[in-house]
């Protein structure tokens, strides 16, 4: 028998018409999706609704994070037709908010930034009404790569910090660093683009509530405005074990904490993933405001950490 799950870790295993449509289209165009590669538990729901998160730059990652089931190894050559195929899939599926992510490509000089930019442009050209969200790797912290992606003007720039600072080494592995991920977000926030800067992380790796609060503060300080928090679920037995199934009430506390700290948009829950129902953020009032915002509020890490602790203690943050 497999391990039992708490009763809130339950999804539907169903296909149906919309699901089959999405599945056949992804197969026909030879696309990769993080839905499949990460064994996402939300896949049935999203695919039935004819949406998916496209994974560009191949299906093989140059990193080997201990939580992730995407294949690691020597990546494939970049497919020049890929941006056009993604654009076609978005059009045929009728996706209103397209999310594009990728494997990490340490082997490419630009980390795949140009392919991201081409994909954003291709999706936009074929689907003028569709908003585009990118979820990028860390590009080794190279701000020029972030700039290349943002020059294509996606509505949302996402880069996930994935876990708290203390657990970063064991969850993400050697080449990644917490400070690098914050630097990527800072570079995005400092770019002239009007993109909403978003990040996300998993809980359930053994982090404390205080560490979650500190991570939220670090993200805010880096210019991040939107955040998602979800439960880590082990894709297969090859990945690291779940340390804790965080109760739904604690996710509600984390979401409230994020808003209290100053995030414009926050979503937390056991099945929340950075791209799960991400179009809902675009309907949120702040997403419209964001397109004409004059500048970002940047506060000191110490001030925010103090606020986080106060909020944790149930007090009103100053």
């Amino acid at each position: 028998m497999r391990q039992p799950f708490p009763d809130w870790i339950r999804r539907k295993w169903a296909s149906g018409e919309g699901f089959s449509f999405t599945k056949e289209l992804v197969k026909e165009l030879g696309l990769h999706t993080v839905c499949q590669s990460a064994h996402c538990p939300n896949m049935a729901e999203c695919w039935r609704a004819r949406t998916a998160t496209f994974m560009i730059l191949g299906n093989v990652c140059s990193r080997d994070c201990s939580y992730c089931s995407v294949r690691s190894g020597r990546p494939e050559p970049v497919d020049g037709d890929e941006p056009g195929k993604i654009a076609e899939a978005v059009a045929r599926m009728g996706v209103r908010h397209a999310v594009v992510t990728s494997v990490t490509r340490d082997d490419l000089a630009d980390g795949g930034a140009a392919q991201f930019a081409e994909t954003v442009r291709a999706v936009r050209a074929a689907n003028p009404e569709t908003t585009v969200e990118v979820l990028t790797p860390d590009f080794g912290g190279d701000a020029s790569c972030v700039g290349t992606v943002l020059d294509a003007e996606p509505e949302v720039f996402g880069h996930n910090v994935e876990t708290v600072e203390r657990l970063f080494g064991e969850v993400r592995g050697g080449r990644a660093a917490y400070s690098t991920s914050l630097a990527v977000l800072r570079a995005a926030a400092g770019h002239a683009s009007r993109a909403i800067v978003k990040s996300g992380f998993m809980v359930g790796h053994g982090e404390t509530g205080e560490e979650v609060a500190r991570t939220l503060s670090d993200l805010l300080e880096s210019g991040c405005e939107a955040v998602s928090i979800g439960q880590y679920l082990r894709p297969t037995k090859e990945q690291r074990a779940v340390v804790e199934y965080v109760e739904p009430a604690r996710f509600e506390e984390y979401e409230k904490l994020a808003y209290d700290l100053g995030f414009s948009y926050a979503i937390a829950g056991p099945f929340v993933r950075s791209s799960y129902r991400s179009e809902e953020m675009m309907q949120h009032g702040f997403a419209n405001r964001s397109s004409s915002r004059p500048g970002r509020r940047v506060r000191s890490r110490d001030v925010m950490a103090g606020e986080a602790l106060a909020a944790q203690a149930g007090e009103k943050a100053p």
């Binding site: 028998m1 799950f5 999804r11 539907k12 295993w13 169903a14 538990p41 082990r234």
Partner: peptide, 14 residues
Amino acid sequence: EMTTDKAAFSVPSP
């Protein structure tokens, strides 16, 4: 009700 490595799943009747 089914269980994978990742989560519990219920299978609805088609």
